Amino acid sequence: MRKTGGDVDEFVAGVKPAKRQRDAVAMIELLREVTGREPELWGTIVGFGSCHYRSPSGTEGDAPIAAFAPRRESTTVYTLRTEAHGERLSKLGPHETGVSCLYIKDLEAVDADVLRDIVAEDYRRVLAGETGDVHYTVTD
């Protein structure tokens, strides 16, 4: 994955439906607050900061340190491993999970403080190199 250099505001202005656009604006503010970084487009993913990752299997690549994607059905929030957030997830509110994704259909229905804690914990872990068997190197 790599940065595509698109205009984040223009991208968000084109997000449909309107609820997903509203959630994208709120996610940008939340991730700005947590990371202290400005958003950049990685295709249709809005990312904050960048890192290089390498897994024990030899898979490697580049990715944002913190990111989300406004998809038609839900906002996808990317995490290191959702299983690491068990207690927090039980307090988050309505959502679904994948291995390293949170799917949120309505950002207003979840606890923003809990979501902020989840994102902040993953961001802190990447910066501190406390990510388990996958190694991350911050590149900006």
Score class of each variant (00 low, 15 high):
G6F: 05
D7P: 03
D7K: 13
D9W: 03
K16W: 04
K16D: 10
A18K: 05
A18P: 08
K19H: 14
D23K: 02
A24V: 00
V25C: 06
A26L: 08
A26M: 01
M27E: 05
E29H: 12
L31H: 11
L31A: 01
R32F: 00
E33R: 15
R37M: 14
P39L: 04
P39A: 06
E40L: 08
G43C: 02
T44K: 05
S50W: 10
S50M: 01
C51N: 03
C51D: 05
H52S: 15
Y53M: 08
S55Q: 13
S57P: 06
G58I: 09
G58V: 04
T59C: 10
E60K: 13
G61A: 01
D62P: 04
R71Y: 01
R71L: 10
R71M: 00
R72E: 07
S74K: 14
T75D: 10
T75H: 02
Y78V: 03
T79S: 07
T79I: 11
E83I: 10
A84M: 08
H85L: 05
G86D: 15
G86V: 09
S90C: 11
K91N: 11
G93C: 11
G93A: 08
E96L: 12
S100K: 13
L102H: 01
Y103K: 15
L107E: 09
A109S: 13
D113E: 15
D113Y: 06
I118W: 09
R124C: 04
R125S: 15
V126K: 10
A128L: 12
G129T: 12
E130G: 12
D133Y: 12
D133N: 14
V134S: 06
T137G: 12
T139G: 11
T139R: 00
D140S: 15
